[in-house]
Every structure is written in C-alpha cells, then in structure tokens.
Design a protein around this nucleic acid. Structure first.
Lengths: 191, 191, 191, 191
DNA sequence: AATGAATGAGTTTTCATTCAT
DNA sequence: TATGAATGAAAACTCATTCAT
C-alpha cells in the first residue's frame, strides 16, 4: 500500500506557480500542470477534486504564506524605527523571493474560482503591522494618518519593488533596499 | 480588424473590461463577451480576427490610454513641487477612474496572448515623468536616487491607492489624496 | 441566422434508442450518439445540457408516448369485452412497435439519472384502463380482483409478448395476438 | 478468475446486485463495487480478470440460480394443476426474492459485456416447464396453444408481479399470489 | 453586416486497470 | 493476498471559430 504523498501536493503547487508566472492562469491546462509536476493527469484528481479547488487551495496556501516571516527577528524592545525597518525588510524580501505567489494571488483574485473570504484573509495578514503602526503614532514617531492609507503607502512601494525586481530582472541589493526604505521612512515619519 | 462601426468596437472593449474585472481573463469566453456587448458571437469576428487580437487590441488601447492626461493642466513654469503634485494627482485619478484598464493590462501581461512589445510600450509611458524627476534632482529639490527606483516608489503608492479604492470601496476624497501625496512627497524630497 | 432545429432533437432521440437497444445505456457515449445522429458532438450540447438531461428528456418523451393510442378506435358504446380487446390490441401493438422505447425506459429507470417522478408518470398512463376495468367489475363481466393486480396480469402478459417478438424475432400475427388475448380474457373474465 | 476466497466473490456479487438495482449497470464503477464489497479496488482484480468477466460471471450465476428451485417440492404423481401451481409458486417466490438478479440479467442482457451464449442459457431454464406444459396439453387439461406463447403468458404475469412487489413495495401475501395464480390458471386451462 | 447554430479540436474529468508496498 | 495510489486512455463537456441564412 502506498500512502498519499504530500510531496505530490507540493509538486503540483510549484508547477502551478511556475506555469502561471509564465502563461497566466488563463493559459494553463490540467494536463500541463500534471506534466510539469511529473505525474499523470489523473493523479492530480486524487489530490484535488477539480481545477477550481486546486486554484482555491493554492491561493489559500499563498495567502497564508504571505503572512509568514513578517516579524522574523523582530525585537519589541528596539526603538520603533529599528523594528519597523526590520519588518519592512522582511516583507520586501519575502515578496521578492515569493513573487510567483503574489502573482498567483493577483490572478486568482479575479478568477471565477474565488470567493470573498480570501480577500478578507489577505487583509488580515497585515493586522500585526497595523498594531505596530499604532505604537509609532502613539509615540509620535510617525505621522497621525489613518492606518489604512499608511499601509497602502508602505505596501504599495514594496509591491512595486518586488514587481520590478522580477519583471526587469533587477538585483535588489542591500543598498537598493536601504535607499527604498529611506523614501518610505521619510514618507511616514513625523515632521 | 476592420472597424466598420466604432460603437461596436467600444462596446466590446467595455464588455471585456467589465468581465475581466469580474472573472479574470481566465474566466471569459468569446460568447460571454458578445453577450455582454449585446451582439452575436459571430459579429465579434467581423471586428476582431480572433480572441488573441481582441486581447492585444484592447491591451494596446489601455496602454495608450494610461499615458493620456499625465500632463493635463501641467504648467512647466510652476515650481517643481506644484508641477509634480499636478501630475501625481493626474495619475492617481486616472488609475482610480480606469482601474479596470490597469487590471486588464496586468492580466493580459501574463496571458499567452501577449508579446513583449506591449511590455516595453507600458514602460515608455512614464518617460515624461522620468524627465521631470531629473529636473527635480538637478534643482536639488528631490533626492538623488536612481529614477527607476524613485518611480517605483511613486507608482507603487499610487497603484495601491487605486487598488484599495476599488477593492474596499473607499472614497478617495481630495483630503485623502492630499494626505497620500504628502507621504509620497516627504519620501522623495531632498533633506 | 439558423434557428434551432427540432429535427435535430428527434434525430438524437432516435439515435439513442437505436444505440441503447444495441448496447445498453451502459455502453453508449455522447460521441457515438452524435455520430449516429449525424451531427458534431458539440451540437448535442446545444440541445441538451448534458448526458443526464438527454436521458431524462428521452425517458420523459417515451413515458408520454407510452400512453398514446391506448384508446384509439375505442367506442364506449361497445360491450365491455369488445372495448377491452380493442385496448388490449392497441397496447400490445404499440409495445411491439415501440419496443425500443420500453427498453429505454427500463434501462433509464435504474440509471443514476432518474428521479421518482417518472415512475409515477409511468403508472398514471394506465389510469384510463383502470377506470375501464372498474366498469367491467361493476357489470360483473370480469372478476372482482384488485385492479392493481389485475393490471399486473394484463400488462405482464403484454410486455412478455413484445419482448419475445423482439428478442426472438417472432411475428406477432393477428392469429397469435388473438390466441394470447384469449388467455388474458379467460384469466380475468368472471366465472 | 481464481476464487481463492469464496466469501469475497460472494461479497462482490452482492455488491454488484445492490448497486445495479440502485443505479443501473450504466452507473457503477469498479471502485464503487469494491467499496460496497468492503475491499480495495485492486482486490477485485485478484478475483476477476476485468469488469467484463465480472459482469459475465455474475450474469451466469444469476442465470443458473434462476433455474434452481423450479421443481422444489414438486411431486410428479400429483395431478397437473397441483403440480403446475407448485411450480408457478416456486417461480414467483423466487422472482420476488431475487428480484435484483432478474434486474441484473435484464441490464447485462443489453450491455456490451454480454455474449449470445448466455441468452440461450436463459431460455433453456424453462425447458422443464415446457415439458410439463406438454403433459397438460396431452391430458387436455390446458389449452392447445404453442408453448412459446403460453410460456410468455405465464412468465409475463409472474415477472410483473415481482416487479410490482419490488417497485411499489407491495406485500405478496399467499392470498394475493393465489388470486394471481387463479387468473393465470383460468387463462391456460382447457375450456 | 449581423446572427446564432454548427463544428470539432482541445480541455476537464472519470475510471478500468496496474503496480509499488 | 490485500491495498489504494498511480496511470493514461477514453469519456464528458467547452469554446474559439466558421458558416448558412
């Protein structure tokens, strides 16, 4: 007896991300996914009920993953700027490294496969960051601006960095990231 | 493509934008587009050779449109900040108003329908803004940062505003836009 | 413009009946049905949502048809036996002529495609005959036996005749039918 | 087929009969049969070469079984009517009790799985009854009608009783059976 | 030009059968 | 033997495109 193989699920996810990056969600077939994941088409259906639930499962996974590592190496005792920069770097590095996942989320976001639940989950990922921003505002370290828009400002910049690194094949050196962080920081810091 | 009736072409474009917004490029069929545009499937093929050229034509149109209005009401005699703010507002308002078009571009960008030409054209849209930024740097009004990344910073923020206005149904009041501009400006202005 | 073609529906029904007779419901594919009906596979789906609804529609049609001609040339003024014989002959001839339809009903009856509604409709077909039997009982012409079972007796015999004519390629001559009717009549007539 | 464990074979047969009754031969898969028989799919293939031979084996079994018990408790010394009634009762009770088997035979009869051999075997089952009928005709106890059609008359009635008991959930009491037998007897008895 | 039914190639999904454990 | 995951050929179904009207 051969038990279900979690590696297979991972292989499928990986194949999906690669193919969607290459051709978009519109351009992939289950047969291609199976081939890329090195299995028979029918095997896909052992692990996923149908295409729809495969897309949903992967979106879910990507959304979960997006939250991961946000607070890695973060030390609450540090001053606000140090802590914030740590998190900013965590996010930008994560977004660059897992750009395929962001891309996939964006594509599936508008697919007929998705429900609103995911949109909410996606938003929730940044709750810890919103709390942190509140601390900054309380300390008067950063501007007193609605967190919704401040987050937009922060995340927007990060997204665009990740996009450009990937689309224009740019290297996001420590130098580049620091320069970018500087703009972000100057944008939010209290005056 | 033989545009005998420009109204029909526009109707098709509009239908595409609406449907892609709703279901993503992956989820639409030529029959649905025709239905949404209130014509028969066969009629689509009088105006567009096939699906690919419809997507390409619309992408092209959206890309062109994106550049339009960038410098509306811009007066080169104004000081840098005034001019820059004008342009920033132009872009953000355009992105919000024509969010469906941005979305469409993003989706078609990764579809099997698109060639690289379009990707370049998209980048070119911001050439005038890059020139403007150069003026700001020469004047020492803004930081001396590679325009590629400074643009990323500016556009990233704008994109996220448009996204949030549309996805979370937020109102982008003059007040909100000004607050957001302030963050952007503080981010790039020379210190 | 080409309007939907009712002939196509009939062609599909006919093809189904022929193929189910040959190979059973288990043995037919949509492609085969289309080929037999001389159309493309996709065309089937213009007229029927899917295989299930094709089977359901045809079953329905067959069930309706089964009732047809029951009382053809029946004259209520005749004495009971004459009237009953007329109807008996109508049914047996109809069953023989449209044996494929009975067969199809029987097969689809147990298919995963069918609901109980049809079973009831099928039963209802014989309501007029049940009324007639009542007259015979009132007149003391036939035995006073529960119509449910008397009908079973009558219909059972008829079914088997139709089956044998078709399976064993027997000729149901007027002579044969009269002999068979005689047994049926002697079975139900009052003693 | 290598029947190492006869219990398993019986379990499979039983599962088939249940499922075919529920969903028809068209609606069952080997996986479902295995599940119903509480074994793994692969195990089925230890006992049966493939689906076709499983259907054939079960059909064969059902056909054999149909003949069994025909002459149970039959005493050749009894007068014709007594003997005939005994056999009639044997058949009707068997058909009611093993209705699933009749059903299965009927379905497989038209499936692509069956060959003509079985169809003949089925017919042969009634040879002993045909011999008996001959005795009745010789004795002038029953009508001098072609046994082929007289058998149709007898079997048709019986089949319909079994069908109605099963489909309409009727109870076939001794009373009911005797009434039904009476009609049959009056139908065939010499006048 | 406009229509929408028809087509059949391509896609999704199922399922009989095999195979590694 | 027994298991059930894996396979891939075949079936159901879709949809871009064509065509008769």
């Amino acid at each position: 007896m051969k038990p279900k193989d979690q590696n297979k699920v991972e292989a499928v996810y990986k194949a999906m991300l690669v193919l969607v990056r290459q051709r978009g969600l519109a351009g992939i077939t289950m047969a291609e996914v199976a081939r890329e994941a090195k299995m028979a088409t029918g095997t896909l259906y052992i692990y996923f009920k149908n295409k729809e639930s495969l897309v949903a499962a992967l979106t879910d996974k990507c959304v979960q993953h997006m939250a991961g590592g946000l607070f890695k190496d973060y030390n609450a005792d540090n001053d606000f700027k140090t802590g914030f920069q740590k998190i900013w770097m965590n996010i930008v590095r994560h977004r660059i490294a897992f750009f395929n996942e962001s891309l996939f989320i964006e594509q599936s976001f508008h697919s007929p496969f998705l429900n609103d639940e995911i949109r909410l989950a996606l938003k929730k990922n940044f709750d810890p960051l919103i709390l942190l921003l509140q601390r900054g505002k309380d300390e008067k370290t950063i501007k007193d601006i609605d967190s919704f828009w401040m987050l937009a400002f922060i995340i927007g910049g990060i997204n665009e960095i990740a996009r450009r690194v990937n689309y224009f094949n740019k290297k996001a050196s420590q130098q580049v990231l620091e320069t970018n962080f500087q703009m972000c920081w100057d944008g939010i810091k209290a005056t």
